[in-house]
Write a protein that binds this DNA or RNA. Structure first.
Lengths: 234, 234
DNA sequence: AAATATAATATGTACGTACATAATATCACT
DNA sequence: AGTGATATTATGTACGTACATATTATATTT
């Protein structure tokens, strides 16, 4: 009854299924027709329906299981895709001027919490780097980072006053596993001074750790200037 | 030279390409062989290669353009997939007991900033709800929400002391467009009292707004108790 | 040399067939 | 009724072919 015109591409099938979910023709928990049936109804190949349903499952709208069939997700977990760009591109993308200052670069053994994070021993050879990223000359983000020299020996030769450690690592030390967390903290006296703000301001904090296989590469603490908002569409 | 055994499924092709990127056999910015060539080299169909490369592009490792070919992403934008579950499931998923208290539910016209957010007029008929979500009896998140009655009339009949507005909306008012933002704020006196914490604690804040088509459905402000961390793998 | 039309090409997608795989349902047996 | 073997089934994937589409490269015209 529904389609006089045929839906012969996967995008339109995707949209049609999503429409039926939105209009609650198919409600959360409901089983939807099997691929062959849908293909027949819509006038396309099963592969096309499969592609559409696969995407919808990846987006969290559908739950699919072999033999059991496909049903509308009972608890639509919405997935936000967070793009995590290099800070420089984030700033330049808004049309602001990006500058960067290396504050400290020393080779030493890490404190215990970093060891725990990265899974390295206390006597590891590491690079400790702090730097400040600025947008239009105003402090934007303060970065404190530990890099394993064992995992990426080339970094000791990099000129980290020209390119930020983050950007260098992105280009030279791809990782296989990463962890990222977001939270709110109060500005310490030191952070407040560097970010040129008050002590006890609420700051947005990102902590990142990355591994290559089982080898810890780097652990970073990124503290953003007051007013920072991370946002995305969903 | 590389493959004596053939890679005839898309996962292994995916992994092999990723391996070559990781080992820097193919460096950022490099053009990689075209689909037909890769298919021939690896001993599989072009469709299989296509599937693998499509996934890798979606994951941000590759840039693909018709006619121009496929190249390793110059600035590997890492995409973190943030799953945004219903709070109840987030808490129960950690094995804690979830409880929920409705603090306020009133029908009134919204303040200007909500109008601006949702794109509704100042005299709109809206539901204003505040509630507290608790984990193991301890305050976990304080929610302040505005819901358009015009967009979802059924909500006035929902028993929001039993089911949270968020959860009700997820099940009854699917949306087509959403916006979410994360930031850090200081606890106001009121928020501090409700979350049973100090004033001026740094709190993690999530602001969400959702639309169905052009109609604004709801705008919510979620303030988490101190110590909250949102994290994910990447 | 610049602008415009045309050809070439790599990716994007649709389709039908075939087989793989995981999960369920059914049946046989105790 | 319970247990285990077996059949069934819906999704998952591979392949070859065909054509669509976006973009670049080339040829043509001004």
């Amino acid at each position: 009854m529904s389609t006089t015109t045929e839906l012969t591409n996967w995008q339109s099938v995707h949209d049609e299924v999503l429409r039926r979910i939105h209009t609650r023709e198919w409600k959360p928990g409901d089983q939807i027709p099997k691929e062959v049936e849908l293909a027949e109804e819509l006038g396309c190949a099963r592969a096309t329906v499969n592609r559409a349903l696969r995407e919808l499952a990846a987006e969290g709208f559908l739950d699919r299981r072999r033999k059991a069939g496909t049903r509308v997700a009972a608890h639509p977990v919405r997935r936000a895709r967070l793009d995590i760009p290099v800070i420089r591109l984030e700033i330049e993308g808004r049309g602001q001027k990006y500058t960067y200052g290396l504050l400290l670069s020393e080779r030493r053994t890490p404190p215990p919490e970093i060891c725990a994070n990265l899974g390295v021993t206390a006597n590891s050879d590491m690079l400790h780097i702090t730097s400040l990223h600025l947008a239009d000359g105003k402090p934007y983000m303060f970065e404190e980072r530990w890099v394993s020299v064992a995992a990426t020996p080339e970094i000791v030769d990099a000129d980290l006053s020209k390119i930020s450690a983050n950007e260098w690592l992105v280009l030279h030390a791809p990782y296989t596993k990463g962890d990222i967390s977001f939270s709110a903290v109060l500005a310490s006296e030191n952070e407040a001074k560097i970010l040129r703000t008050q002590k006890n301001e609420p700051l947005f904090l990102i902590e990142r750790t990355t591994w290559e296989g089982e080898k810890g590469i780097t652990s970073a603490r990124l503290v953003f200037a007051p007013g920072y908002r991370m946002h995305t569409a969903l």
